[in-house]
Design a protein around this nucleic acid. Structure first.
Lengths: 101, 101
DNA sequence: GATACCAGTTACAAAATGGATACTATACAT
DNA sequence: ATGTATAGTATCCATTTTGTAACTGGTATC
């Protein structure tokens, strides 16, 4: 139960799992993530920092003319697969249950 | 990804999964829940209402003197088993990874 | 020089979350 | 009538989260 709280601390909140899900489909740059998810720069910056601190994503500065920054999931983030899958399934099923009542 | 947000909306936050976990071990009354978890009445009341609205727990007024109220998990709450288990495992493993580094 | 794109940061504000404390109302026992 | 137990509610407040808008600093383009 403490363990569940730990998980929510790392991966709870409005955006973290969304970001991980997006990044699972391939690395993105800051602006791309912002556009794709609708997260504003200020919030996105904070979320990415926290994900990086927890070893779930990497941040790579690319030596391009305007400098770009690439974010990508780490191998460690794959340990979240079961959690993501279970939550995805439940949310989907719950939504159907509510709509189909 | 929308589905994951749905799950977090229903079951995220600081207390909901804790309450479900406690109630899985048997029904409790309001004061019991408050004492066992340390949740203050105001917050507990709100959390229980939300869980009830989502069909995850039941609230039963007992004809005792003084009146008591029993809260219990519903069969539907069992659909959360996979989510709870995955989150429990991940939180546990993540904690070990952090401490053992 | 003006414009635009990059990755953010800063300052401010709104909203949600969580909590402390005291209180209501009922009923029973002393 | 006083005290105790029940299940909450009411009021107020602190913290956290999320958002808006403007801005920095760098580079390139027109």
């Amino acid at each position: 139960m403490l363990a569940i709280r730990d998980t929510l601390d790392v991966v709870g909140g409005k955006w973290k799992l969304v970001l991980i899900t997006v990044l699972r489909n391939g690395k993105r740059r800051f602006r791309e993530l912002s556009r794709e998810t609708g997260i504003t720069p200020r919030v996105l910056s904070k979320e990415l920092q926290e994900l990086e601190m927890n070893g779930l994503i990497t941040r790579t500065v690319c030596d391009t003319r305007p400098v770009t920054v690439e974010y990508a999931v780490t191998p460690y983030s794959e340990t979240l697969t079961d959690v993501l899958e279970a939550m995805y399934k439940w949310g989907h099923q719950h939504r159907e249950k509510i709509l189909g009542s």
